[in-house]
Design a protein around this nucleic acid. Sequence first.
DNA 1: CTCCACAATCTACATCTGTAAATCATGGCG
DNA 2: CGCCATGATTTACAGATGTAGATTGTGGAG
Lengths: 124, 124
Amino acid sequence: MKITDAESLVMEALWKKHPRTSEDLILELAPRETWSEATIRTLLGRLVKKGAVEAKGEGRRYLYSPLIERSDYLHAESESLVDRLFGGEVAPMVANFAKNRRLKAKDIKALKKLLSELEDGDDK
Amino acid sequence: MKITDAESLVMEALWKKHPRTSEDLILELAPRETWSEATIRTLLGRLVKKGAVEAKGEGRRYLYSPLIERSDYLHAESESLVDRLFGGEVAPMVANFAKNRRLKAKDIKALKKLLSELEDGDDK
DNA sequence: CTCCACAATCTACATCTGTAAATCATGGCG
DNA sequence: CGCCATGATTTACAGATGTAGATTGTGGAG
């Protein structure tokens, strides 16, 4: 189930807070993304149709909630990138960030911490 | 300049080896991607038009070469992902991989090595 | 010189996306 | 009770994308 760029902005809003009405979503998204109400309603409709969002009837309006976890979405997207571009290897991808100076001292520190936790950690 | 999924497969083939003729590309890509010759020629044409590939005339056939660096492409794609989904922070993205068991001992080792090299390394 | 095989280019077309206007339905106000 | 505001749904439509058939142009075989 593919979530498009525009749709993902709606999902993010729903992950941040839910359930919410379309009106509520519109209040947040319309100005920020310069979208019309109709656009947001269309996106919501498409997301419901593809099973990514649930519309629970509350009177004649609905309350919308995400049906997929943000973490699953992150996982799938990341996975896809690393598979497509880095032969499924995480290290080369991080190396790529490093090469492009996207890793600052702060990041390196955070990563080292993360890695040491992983070592004496949960895994296996 | 946006390179689509289908186009990126042609780019990958060109990054692997270039310059090459369309025939050569077709030999490699048509079976693997189950594409017709025409499809590959269309993709090549679009890539040339958008300046991602150069077609250097050699008689009446061309020799095709990539005009953009694979490393730049990787960089842009990775950047876009981490910006869109992880607030521009690399560490959380790696953590996400970790959480999903995509980091095996091997990866962790590679990453630690990478990080220590970075520390006493080149940077600044 | 002429004709053709083949590369290149053009055209085609269904689907997907982004964006939004038009229409439908109904719960609540008067 | 009937009408309407408002949320939902349908329809619209241009541009992007995946995929490929139709057309063109020309270097080289004969």
